[in-house]
Design a protein around this nucleic acid. Structure first.
Lengths: 362, 362
DNA sequence: CGCGTTGACAGTCACGTTTCTGCAAGATCA
DNA sequence: TGATCTTGCAGAAACGTGACTGTCAACGCG
């Protein structure tokens, strides 16, 4: 009679259930479950036998059933910023790719997988997948999706500190203000007299914090702000804005660009106006792209360390999911790294032979 | 007594079950399910009433239960190429990002979400998530994961034609041979006498097909092959290989690079050797990156149309999942696009004024 | 020898849906 | 007016697993 439960609905030949394993091994379902999950108190002989039979049948436990039973799916949502309606684009290609790569790797190492989901979307899709938690990249002010997720009791960790009163479980971010101030000081040290900014019109905290830091710095040192803002999701607009910035009557002699493509756009614009970099124009942009190491000249970039951010976000989130959030702070700040290259150094090679105590002597 | 089944285990206040909705609406579970899914025959009044109550309670059906019952999870695996063990990297940043973006968008439009999974991984992770199908990018020859998936009866569609006898459900790819031949002809038309190739040491079909096409072309036109191969996952190796290629005694006067960073690497190497592009060296590389539009000079690129590939892969896969595979061919070829820029055009006005055989003159 | 303890398993329920079957009550028809 | 059909809904069986409870034998101990 124990054979009676051999799958009568064996639709898929490759799909053996736990019942089939139990029947084939001559034990009960409980024993199989315990043997495979290492739970009950079984003699090693039985455990090995069951595992062997399960292997032979190619048994794979149903993820859906397990999820239903345990309440854990092992899935983490990764929200990508969307612009417009259907298509979604990320101007920060390299940043997102690096961050997602690190996050995927970190999640996998702890037994979780990532699900790509668009930030703005019908609830339809979101509720169709069982998530244990969610990573949100640069959530907007009153993101309805985030609120809904939090309301359902799901842990939500954001990359970038949340704007307004968004109730995330935790967040990981850089100190963007310190980074901008550091860059502006770096440019001033290199001899810049009037530093311009290429910024965005979007309302995310990165853009906001960076821009206000710039304005405060200008106020502090008594420089008139010189900046152009453009919709960051439009690459053409970036090139146009770069051109506008260098075409102004109060043309800056140094520019910091907040977004990845700004470096090449500014370089191209500088060439159009016959400006030499770094002699006539100092250049820094925020980017993770390696192309800036081999442009002519190489461009100084600010790295936000997306790998570290992606890893940290995942660690904090999984800790929260598994209830180990005690030791981790809910707010984590990752340091940035300024990769200094030729574009922000006035004639560097001359001074390197001179005493090391005069780095900015020029 | 219908009230008796109001959630006695209401652990989460935000988690209302279908029972709670049924109780609150004064109908049965069946009616709720039918009303929300538009299935049964119900008067519109009841349907509206149930939906209203469900909305008021913030009811979200459990994805896990639905998956268990229906056998469909709405999840599609996206396999990313891995190198080494734990960390995985994709040299084709822009390609992958664009392709993944299009795939995500296309999947979402049809109610599916994408799960990022590493190609090489313990079966652990793969069997922990219920997939309806899988997209595989550039599967290797005898990929065990793919075989396992196919054995389980899951549809598998690959980006890039599968090597060997890999039993995928369908594949989508470019005509890489035609693309390479087109580029070589294009370079020859521009005046190239000796065309070099920067290729990879990996065994994927893209590299293989492109390289053999190059060798065949060389044989046809009677040119000695001039190429350097390097492990494509190592960006440093790419720069070194580019340098090696231009340092050869039989230095080519035109180069096609198979991978995304080859353009900048070759450009940098050309500068080191005092070669002008395109006067002394014609350059084309396969890339989706927009930076090549604003390099100095702009570099001609071959686009593999990752957006179209990503969309096509998802369409074919979902058709297979839903059993509509009749009208779609199982093998689909997406045309490439050659974006001709300055780097591959010998300046039209004064083309052969100076002897072209003095590459390192200045 | 009786009794408590422990090992090794089997039965059974519950997770939250979907869906099949079925049953009343009204509508339609011969 | 009874017989058949449609409408509107309820009951209950799965889906495949994990966990709790129960059972039965063996064993140690006073």
């Amino acid at each position: 009679m124990s054979r009676a439960e051999t799958s009568r609905r064996g639709s898929r030949p490759g799909r053996a259930g736990i019942r089939d394993v139990a029947a084939a091994a001559g034990v009960s379902i409980t024993t199989v479950s315990d043997a495979l999950n290492g739970k009950g108190r079984l003699p090693d002989a039985t455990r090995r036998h069951v595992r062997e039979v399960a292997d032979r049948l190619g048994y794979r436990p149903s993820a859906a059933a397990r999820t239903l039973r345990t309440g854990k799916s092992g899935l983490i949502g990764l929200t990508v910023t969307t612009y417009g309606d259907e298509p979604f684009t990320f101007t920060e290609f390299a940043y997102f790719a690096e961050m997602a790569r690190a996050a995927t790797s970190a999640a996998l190492a702890r037994g979780y997988a990532l699900v790509i989901l668009p930030a703005t979307s019908r609830h339809d899709v979101w509720s169709n997948v069982a998530l244990d938690g969610t990573v949100v990249i640069d959530p907007s002010d009153h993101d309805p999706v985030v609120s809904e997720l939090v309301r359902q009791g799901l842990p939500v960790v954001s990359d970038g500190r949340p704007a307004g009163t968004l109730p995330v479980t935790a967040w990981v971010d850089n100190d963007h203000e310190a980074a901008v101030l550091g860059i502006l000081d770096h440019l001033a040290d290199a001899g810049a007299r009037r530093i311009g900014l290429l910024t965005g019109t979007t309302t995310d905290t990165y853009t906001h914090l960076s821009t206000t830091a710039y304005l405060r710095w200008c106020e502090r040192v008594g420089q008139d702000p010189v900046y152009e803002a453009y919709p960051a999701h439009d690459p053409c607009a970036g090139a146009v804005a770069a051109d506008r910035l260098l075409a102004r009557p109060d043309r800056p002699d140094a520019v910091y660009g907040l977004f990845d493509p700004n470096g090449t756009d500014l370089l191209a614009a500088a060439r159009r106006y016959g400006l030499r970099v770094p002699e006539d124009l100092l250049l820094v942009c925020c980017s993770e792209s390696t192309v800036y190491a081999s442009t002519e000249p190489p461009i100084t970039t600010l790295s936000l360390k997306p790998r570290r951010i992606g890893t940290a976000v995942i660690q904090v989130l999984i800790d929260a999911i598994e209830g180990l959030h005690s030791d981790q702070p809910v707010e984590q700040v990752i340091p940035t790294e300024l990769i200094v290259r030729t574009s922000s150094q006035r004639r560097p090679p001359r001074t390197t032979v001179s005493p090391p105590r005069s780095p900015e002597s020029d």
